[in-house]
């Protein structure tokens, strides 16, 4: 024996002097509800209540400030589909090259498709470059690569807007200095889209770099060594060691970039004001303009919101489910 007083006798004496919380004999099953209820309540308020209410609103004429009007069934959805700002496709078989394909859904697809793809490709490439750097340079470059992401989006947008400004733009000045005529950044529909995609790539490629870099760090060195011992050429090492190792990370980056591209707002609105015309108006911006600017058509906006939620959550969650992010 240790030669000390028997602890076991004194073991249960302490209870009374303790704070109430420690003395409470709460069963695990009660406790788990006590822990979960506040969050469940708030989450219900954020997810169930708005969703149900949004569906309800979308079935009515509804003005944002004055409230509910007549029940219109799926009228708002029908209006949305017929709204040329939402989707417009005109095609004359006699002139097959002169078709018109526009509307916020189309702009969204172009914007999301190009910006996310470019961000992923560029992000993976830069992450691999970062990974190849020596330990001395890695932290420095990592910070430089990450900085754009940390800049408040509205500040990014203003900075770019001033940089490409027709009269005072630094970028134009620099391009002219090396003998390139600066493009009309925001005045043609195609160029305006290119510009907002470019700024989005500048701001958000860093997130992809960070995520993929974390993936690269997690690949054990021995796997590269095994591939080298087996005599695999560089492309094969990339194809069979690197790529499988970062597949999960690329999927995660994809999910978060997709999610954010559906809610893009300040960059587009500040740089192009969704124009020229409505040529860079994505769904989120159409939603804002429908509901919060002008007449406040919340019924139509809610219908658009439902479509946007279904689209975003559907696409993102299907990827999440497939890559097993839940585990």
């Amino acid at each position: 024996m240790l030669g000390l007083s028997a602890v076991s006798e004194r073991y249960r004496k302490r209870r009374d002097g303790q704070p109430l919380l420690n003395r409470l004999e709460v069963s695990d099953s009660t406790l788990r509800w006590i822990f979960m209820l506040p969050s469940i309540a708030v989450l219900a308020f954020i997810s169930i209540f708005p969703l149900v209410r949004a569906v309800w609103m979308s079935l009515h004429d509804w003005n944002l400030t004055s409230g509910k009007g007549a029940f219109v069934g799926f009228g708002n959805y029908a209006r949305l589909l017929n709204d040329p700002e939402f989707f417009r496709f005109e095609f004359d078989p006699s002139q097959p090259l002169e078709f018109v394909l526009s509307g916020s859904v189309v702009h969204q697809a172009v914007y999301t498709g190009f910006s996310v793809t470019i961000q992923l490709v560029l992000g993976v490439a830069l992450a691999m470059y970062l990974f190849s750097l020596s330990e001395r340079w890695q932290p420095i470059f990592r910070t430089i690569f990450v900085l754009p992401m940390l800049v408040t989006p509205i500040a990014t947008a203003l900075m770019w807007r001033l940089m490409i400004d027709g009269s005072i733009g630094v970028l134009n000045f620099m391009l002219e200095a090396v003998g390139i005529a600066p493009p009309a950044w925001t005045s043609s529909p195609v160029m305006a889209m290119v510009t907002v995609i470019m700024v989005s790539v500048w701001q958000w490629t860093p997130l992809v770099i960070l995520i993929v870099f974390a993936g690269l760090l997690s690949i054990p060195e021995s796997r590269y060594e095994a591939a080298r011992v087996d005599g695999a050429p560089r492309w094969a090492i990339f194809r069979h060691v690197t790529l499988p190792g970062i597949k999960y990370m690329i999927a995660i980056a994809l999910v978060f970039r997709l999610m954010r591209s559906f809610r893009a707002f300040p960059i587009i609105e500040t740089i192009t004001s969704h124009g020229p015309g409505t040529s860079t108006q994505i769904m989120n911006i159409q939603l804002y303009r429908t509901v919060f600017v002008g007449t406040g058509d919340a019924g139509l906006g809610a219908a658009l919101g439902i479509v946007l939620i279904v689209l975003t959550v559907g696409i993102c969650m299907s990827i999440v489910r497939r890559v097993g992010m839940m585990q």
Binding site: L2, G3, L4, V7, R10, Y11, R12, K13, R14, G17
Partner: peptide, 23 residues
């Protein structure tokens, strides 16, 4: 464990910890 579940004083706990560590 001693700190949480017994009414031992700091000194007593300290002594016991030392003793166990010695062992």
């Amino acid at each position: 464990g001693l700190r949480l579940a017994t009414d031992m004083s700091k000194g007593e706990i300290e002594d016991r910890v030392e003793e166990a560590a010695g062992l």
